[in-house]
């Protein structure tokens, strides 16, 4: 909930070839079999224990956030990307006000006149509009509504090396 700075960088050179392959080749296509990690190990030429150890290490170091399904956002209901220009002295208050909504699941500070960007998701459009109106009233600035009209790309991961 509180402002969180970006995580420290890991030196990618510190990763082994096996770790790099695992990351490049398994951003998608984790086997839907009873023993997916054994299947991966066979493909990679290593052992199931080694695959599990590497994934566990990478997860603990924050190199990967998790191993599992990536769901398409917006399963139901309404949602919009929104942006607002907040003066520097009001940033802490505005950021906290916006992040406090359960309906806000992403809130980023960006280098732009419009410096706060957030996503509002709710069961219906009326609730989305209410949240945006409350934020607009708090900030005293117009809030841009930029709902998704078309998504062009299914995120299948991308080559890291």
């Amino acid at each position: 909930m509180l402002a969180e700075t970006l995580q420290p960088e890991l030196n990618p050179e510190a990763l082994t070839e096996l770790e790099k392959r695992l990351l490049n080749e398994y951003q998608q296509g984790l086997p839907l079999s009873p023993t997916p990690f054994a299947d991966m190990a066979q493909h990679l030429g290593t052992t199931e224990d080694e695959v599990l150890r590497i994934l566990d290490d990478m997860q603990q170091q924050g190199i990967i956030s998790r191993v599992g399904p990536v769901f398409k956002p917006k399963q139901a209901g309404a949602s919009t990307l929104a942006a607002v220009a907040v003066p520097p002295e009001a940033m802490a208050s505005a950021a906290a006000f916006i992040s406090a909504f359960d309906e806000v699941n992403h809130n980023y500070e960006r280098l732009h006149r419009l410096n706060l960007w957030f996503v509002v998701t709710a069961p219906n459009q009326q609730r989305v509009d209410e949240v945006l109106a409350e934020i607009e009233a708090h900030c005293g600035q117009p809030v841009l509504h930029l709902p998704l009209m078309k998504h062009f790309h299914i995120d299948l991961g991308f080559p890291l090396w």
Partner: peptide, 17 residues
């Protein structure tokens, strides 16, 4: 059906440089 985009390791690109 596309509800799941992919199943796999989800890298943290920022940590990876």
């Amino acid at each position: 059906s596309g509800i799941i985009r992919r199943i796999g390791a989800v890298p943290n690109h920022y940590t990876l440089g």
